[in-house]
Amino acid sequence: MRILGVRPARLSLHAFLILTSLVWLVPVVWALYTALRPFADTAKHGYVSFGGSYDVKNFTDAWSQADMMHFFLNTFVITVPALVITLFFASMAAFVIARFRWRYNVALLVLFTAGNLLPQQAIITPLFRIYTTIKVPNWMSDSGELYDSTLGLILIHVAFQTGFCVFVMSNYMKTIPGEISEAAVVDGASVFRQYWQLTLPLCRPVLAALATLEFTWIYNDFYWATALISTGDKRPITAALANLQGEFFVNNNLVAAGSLLVAVPTLIVFFALQRHFIAGLTLGSSKG
C-alpha cells in the first residue's frame, strides 16, 4: 500500500526525523529569537510572544559588557597548547601500544584509558591541594603556584584528555598494515622515524577527528576553569558568560545573545573539519 507513491514506513520515518530535528532546533532558534528582542519587550509581553522591536543590540552589548575579546584570547591560549600537547603525547603512546608487542601492552592501554573513567569531581580536593603546593617560577605563573595559572589548566586538560586520544589513536594505528613498518625496519628506519615520518602522516584523518572533539571539550570546559582559577581575568570564555548574570537581576535576552556568540568557534571548527571528523571516527572504531 502506498500513499502518493510513498511507502508508509518511509513516510513515518521522515515524520520522525523532522520531529526529532525540530526538538533539537527549537531551543536554539528560540534562543536566537529571544536574543534579538530587547529586555523591556519580553518583560512586558513574556518570552512566548511576538511584537515589539528586533535588533542586534543584545549581541553588541554582550560582546562589550562581558569583554569577550579578552576571554576568547584566554580560551585560545589554553585550548591550543593543550590540544597540541595532548595529540602529540597520545600519538606517541598509541604508536608504542599499536606497533610493539611486549609484556605490558594491555596494562599500558588500561592505564591510559582508566584515567578517563575517573569523574573529574572525585579528584578535585587532592588536586587542589597539589596545585596550591607546587611552586612554579613567576614567569610561568604570576600566582607563583600551579593553582590559579594558565599552565596548571593546560596540564590538567592534557592529563585528562590524553587517555581517550590514546585509545582512539591506537585503534586507528592498528588498522594501518604492519607490513609498512616492517618494510621500513628492513630499510633501516629508526623507531622515531617509523613514528614521525611513516605512521603519523597516515593518521591525518584520526588526528583531525580528535582535534575537533578535543577542541570542543577543552573549549567548553567550565569545571576546571572554575575550580582551579581564582582570578577572574585569567578564566576562559565559558566563565565570561557568567559575567553577564547579576546577583539577582538577569537579562536572559543578553545571556542568550552571549551564549550564541560563545558557541560560534566550536561550530566553525566542526564545519571546517567535518569530513575528517566522521571519516576518522568510523575508521578508528572499525577494528578494536
Binding site: L118, P119, Q120, F164, W217, Y223
Partner: peptide, 29 residues
C-alpha cells in the same frame, strides 16, 4: 559538549560502581 560526556563517562553499571567507590573516596578526602 563537555569532557564528562565523553563516550567513556556514560553509564555502564560496572563503571558506575567504580565511580561510586571513587566518589566515596573523594568525599572522605
Amino acid at each position: 559538549t563537555s569532557a564528562q560526556n565523553s563516550p567513556y563517562a556514560q553509564g555502564v553499571s560496572r563503571r558506575s560502581l567504580f565511580r561510586g567507590a571513587v566518589g566515596l573516596a573523594g568525599v572522605s578526602a
